[in-house]
């Protein structure tokens, strides 16, 4: 550690009432984030990344409850704050690029109106100054015709344009922490790289911290100092980004995940099927007693099936596994 922690999440556990009974989609999640640091959060679809991100904003789905743990952000205990204070923090200090922009944006307001509202409720800026910043923000987010975009309603924009509008909104107030949940899914490679460059610039300039949630590992590799890997509600590995991608993840799930890409574009569908990880993700209401990955893991033994793994290693570099894979990755990870 050493560096000043801006965010410290400890043993965060979130439970949710569903028809199948109580589930725990976020389980004993711990990590910290320093000023100016970028951390990538990756993992299985449905492993709890979005719920973890939302909880840093104090947003919880209906029917959920914090079953344990704490979130300290910039010296304040987020889980103990009244809603009024949370609302100030949201936007001003922490903001989020939501995974599905179309649902996060208001369909009946123009882009301009929606961004203006953010400034009006958090700053004393004049109307003119706000207009100037709106256009500047949209342009910085890689939208070449900000004026037209600002006058548009969300449905008049393409998926990637909406995504860039979300990014501009999240960056509007220059928050201390940005949670970017799949911010590049609708962007072509060249625009995506521009956005990553923008985030890096802001981090250097103003020491902003970034939690970067993404399935695109090449992007995660490019932006993150550290990587957190999630599976079935838990963080199962934390590693410096360089180590994770060059030597390979130590958690067997991480290894299997990296193997699912069409390798270097050598294959086509006529030649071989892609290597999906065999078996199913266990349902959250019916998790096995030991390691959640055991039913699909090639290294699993009786111990794995019966007993929760221990944490190997310490903060910054740790793996939640009985038999971590310490062999260096054979082929270099795809750079696509």
């Amino acid at each position: 550690m050493g560096k000043e922690a801006l965010l410290r999440v400890e043993n965060l556990t979130l439970s949710l009432k569903t028809r199948e009974g109580e589930i725990v989609p976020v389980r004993e999640v711990s990590f910290s984030l320093s000023k100016g640091e970028a951390v990538g959060l990756v993992g299985e679809s449905g492993s709890g990344k979005t719920l973890t991100g939302l909880s840093l904003l104090g947003l919880f789905p209906p029917g959920s409850r914090i079953a344990g743990g704490s979130i300290f952000f910039d010296g304040e205990d987020l889980l103990a704050l009244p809603e009024g204070r949370l609302r100030t923090i949201r936007g001003q200090k922490v903001s989020m690029v939501f995974q599905e922009p179309q649902s996060a944006l208001n369909p009946v307001l123009t882009v301009e109106t929606q961004i203006r509202e953010i400034y009006q409720s958090h700053t004393p800026l004049s109307g003119e100054e706000i207009s100037r910043r709106i256009l500047e923000g949209l342009r910085a987010a890689g939208l070449p015709d900000p004026l037209t975009v600002s006058r548009s309603y969300p449905h008049q924009l393409s998926g990637g344009m909406r995504q860039r509008v979300m990014i501009a909104m999240a960056l509007a107030l220059d928050p201390l922490l940005v949670i970017a949940d799949e911010p590049t899914t609708a962007l072509d490679p060249t625009v995506a790289l521009q956005i990553l460059a923008l985030l890096a610039r802001i981090r250097q300039r103003s020491g902003q911290s970034l939690l970067f949630i993404s399935h695109d590992l090449s992007h995660v590799r490019r932006v993150s100092d550290r990587v957190l890997l999630m599976y079935a509600g838990r963080i199962v590995e934390e590693a410096p980004s360089a180590r994770f991608f060059s030597l390979g993840p130590r958690h067997p799930y991480g290894r299997a995940l990296l193997a699912s890409r069409p390798e270097g574009g050598i294959l086509t569908r006529k030649e071989a099927p892609l290597q999906a990880i065999g078996g199913q993700v266990p349902p959250l209401w019916d998790l096995p007693p030991g390691c959640s990955f055991a039913p699909r893991c090639s290294r699993a033994d009786a111990l794995c099936t019966s007993t929760l793994p221990p944490w190997n290693g310490g903060e910054g570099e740790r793996v939640f596994c009985h038999h971590p894979d310490e062999s260096p990755l054979g082929a270099p990870v795809h750079a696509a």
Binding site: V42, G43, E44, S45, Q99, E182, T185, A186, H215, L217, A256, L257, L258, S260, R261, R269, P273, L274, Q275, A276, I277
Partner: peptide, 13 residues
């Protein structure tokens, strides 16, 4: 676009 690599591979298959 919103799927992890393994799930993406399953859908492509």
């Amino acid at each position: 676009a919103s799927l992890d690599l393994s799930m993406g591979a399953q859908i492509i298959n």
